[in-house]
Design a protein around this nucleic acid. Structure first.
Length: 296
DNA sequence: GTCCAGGTCGCGC
DNA sequence: GCGCGACATGGA
């Protein structure tokens, strides 16, 4: 078994960061509570499939993240580099949140949550995977989201050779090639499957590039436009995806946020979207995180 | 049976 | 730009 070692400066807490939102519950992620370990089956660019087991260790001013890699053959240096990049991407170890921490420190109750090391919300190694998962959160319950993603991975993803039950997230090509009947009879995403297959087809045929959206090449406004041009992605999903890309200036207003703001700020009366925005407006570029860590 | 869940699309105005 | 019904699925 091989191992990678990554470092990140505090404030950072591994468990609180990984479990900071629901993504850790979605396949091929899996959280092992007893071991404080995040597992993930990952398909490398060359098609090899490995199992990653990640956990954090306190190292004083920083946290060391150990990544155990199970694979059928020893990994090349190039493969190790690819995994190192992907893990840093998933855990957002290179994101600069210092501005947010400065603002957060002025709010006692929120700072209590954030200062221990929250903020770096988990994401997938690819934008494609995050888009698919985000579409699977719309107009449904979280429980069903988990089921949809589980079935998608189970039916379409490549197996991990040392434990074939465990599978990687499917590539756009694998999603595009799957027959509609499989979606209808097994994966059961309802009307969402058409959106997801259309997206996969566009990617395979080269009519769209998603991964470039994380390369910091577009201004946020064009980023949002690009996201909303995906069928099935409206304002809520686009704002969620902006967060997953690393922009926090937009709020993903959904039934949950409405319920939260209604209770905390509007004495049980349902606020309009404008009123919700006004609550978090002072946070500027950091509205999403401000709400996410807003104490009840 | 009806309503709705971490919404969005396509239509008509 | 806004209002409206339709949309697959499963649970209350």
């Amino acid at each position: 078994m091989q191992q990678l070692e990554l470092f990140v400066n505090k404030p950072y807490a591994f468990k609180e960061s990984v479990c900071g939102h629901g993504w850790y519950m979605l396949a091929p992620f899996r959280w092992l509570e007893d071991e404080n370990t995040l597992e993930r089956v990952e398909r490398l660019n060359n098609g090899n499939v490995v199992l990653l087991c990640m956990h954090g260790e306190d190292k004083g001013a920083s946290v060391r993240i150990l990544v155990d890699i199970q694979s059928i053959e020893a990994l090349t240096l190039a493969e190790q580099d690819e995994l190192r990049r992907k893990v840093r991407m998933m855990l957002r170890l290179d994101e600069d949140l210092s501005e947010f921490y400065v603002l957060a420190a002025q709010h006692e109750a929120l700072w209590e949550k954030v200062s221990i090391g929250r903020g770096r919300l988990l994401r997938s190694p690819t934008v494609f995977e995050d888009v698919v998962k985000t579409i699977c959160t719309t107009n449904t319950t979280w429980k069903q989201t988990i089921g949809m993603v589980n079935r998608l991975v189970y039916h379409l993803g490549d197996s991990f050779p040392l434990n074939p039950e465990r599978r990687a997230f499917p590539t756009p090509a694998q999603v595009a090639a799957a027959p509609e009947s499989l979606f209808e009879q097994e994966i059961k995403m309802g009307y969402r499957s058409a959106y997801i297959q259309q997206l996969a087809c566009e990617l395979v045929e080269g009519h769209r590039d998603l991964e470039c959206l994380r390369q910091n090449s577009l201004p946020p406004k064009d980023l949002k436009k690009a996201l909303k041009s995906i069928k099935g992605v409206g304002d809520y999903a686009a704002h969620t995806l902006l967060m997953l890309i690393g922009y926090y200036h937009e709020l993903a207003i959904d039934s949950e946020m409405r319920a939260f703001v209604k209770k905390k700020y509007f004495d049980g009366n349902l606020p309009t979207d404008k009123e919700i925005l006004a609550i978090y407006e002072p946070w500027g570029k950091w509205k999403y995180l401000a709400h996410w860590f807003d104490p009840a």
